[in-house]
């Protein structure tokens, strides 16, 4: 009867429970974060939408041209929106354990479930926002993404990378508050290096090599390849990107597992 009785594992049932748990966690995250007041769940899209528009508008007004003749508004918005997802996932990771530890009273819910649910929601919301922006650029400026599949792939890769790093940050936060204190500073300082606001081909050759060591740069280049096609040169290595994703996630799973054992609820 009980799920914990020893015996052959029923994978179908385990998978069904897993999906139920993730679904319930996502719904709960939505109601705890946004409630049912005023815009409610629409805030999920409203926040990145407003920030993205503001950043885009700012650069449009200050009016610097971009190398390769890229559209100023489209470049900044499509750089900022994915960056917003990366930053949200990273910045929110250290507090996610403390904010949700009452969920652990339900043995079916693991720390990993909590992190996955949060980040899927964040990723879904930001990807929805990006789709809204891209549809708007397409209709207003006739600038449609050249290869939408590559944009989606790049976004998913960036989400998976942020998720892996987020797992480690969440694990670290179980040991020390310091993680949460410094992470906002770190995401702020490293903002110019993520690849969100420059393109590799803008840089001198030796700097290009160094920039391509940064894993997120590959995600942003991939997204831009999908957006602008061959109008501008893009440089990325899918193997390098995937290796980082796997490495960060494995390290994240391991550290979270170790930290869970000493978590005091």
């Amino acid at each position: 009867m009980s799920a914990s009785v020893a015996g052959p594992v029923d994978w179908g049932r385990a998978l069904r429970i897993q999906f139920r748990v993730l679904g319930a966690l996502i719904l709960r995250e939505m109601s705890t974060r946004f409630g049912r007041e005023n815009l409610g769940y629409l805030w999920l899209f409203a926040e990145p939408l407003m920030l993205g528009s503001a950043i885009g508008a700012l650069h449009l007004v200050t009016g610097h041209g971009l190398p390769g003749g890229l559209h100023v508004l489209m470049f900044w918005v499509t750089g900022y929106v994915p960056f917003y997802m990366f930053r949200s996932v990273i910045n929110r990771s250290p507090t996610s354990v403390l904010a949700n530890q009452s969920l652990l009273y339900h043995r079916r819910i693991t720390l990993l479930d909590i992190m996955v649910a949060r980040n899927l929601l964040e990723g879904g919301a930001v990807m929805g926002t990006l789709a809204i922006f891209l549809a708007a650029f397409g209709m207003a400026l006739d600038l449609w993404p050249k290869q939408p599949a590559l944009v989606v792939f790049g976004m998913m890769a960036l989400l998976a990378m942020s998720h892996g790093a987020g797992l480690m940050l969440a694990a670290g936060a179980i040991y020390t508050d310091l993680i949460d204190r410094v992470i906002h500073l770190i995401t702020y300082i490293t903002m110019p290096f993520t690849g969100a606001f420059f393109m590799v081909f803008w840089l001198p050759t030796d700097l290009q090599h160094q920039a391509l060591l940064i894993p997120t740069v590959h995600c942003f280049e991939l997204i831009r390849h999908g957006l602008f096609g061959t109008a501008v040169p893009t440089t990325y290595d899918i193997g390098y990107m995937v290796a980082w994703i796997i490495g960060l996630n494995l390290a994240g799973l391991l550290t979270l597992r170790i930290a869970r054992r000493r978590l005091v609820v």
Binding site: I17, R20, V21, G23, A24, L27, R28, S31, H106, R108, I109
Partner: peptide, 11 residues
């Protein structure tokens, strides 16, 4: 809402 959450988690 807590009751709904519990119902979802525990089927």
């Amino acid at each position: 809402d807590n009751a709904r959450f519990i119902a979802r988690i525990y089927e």
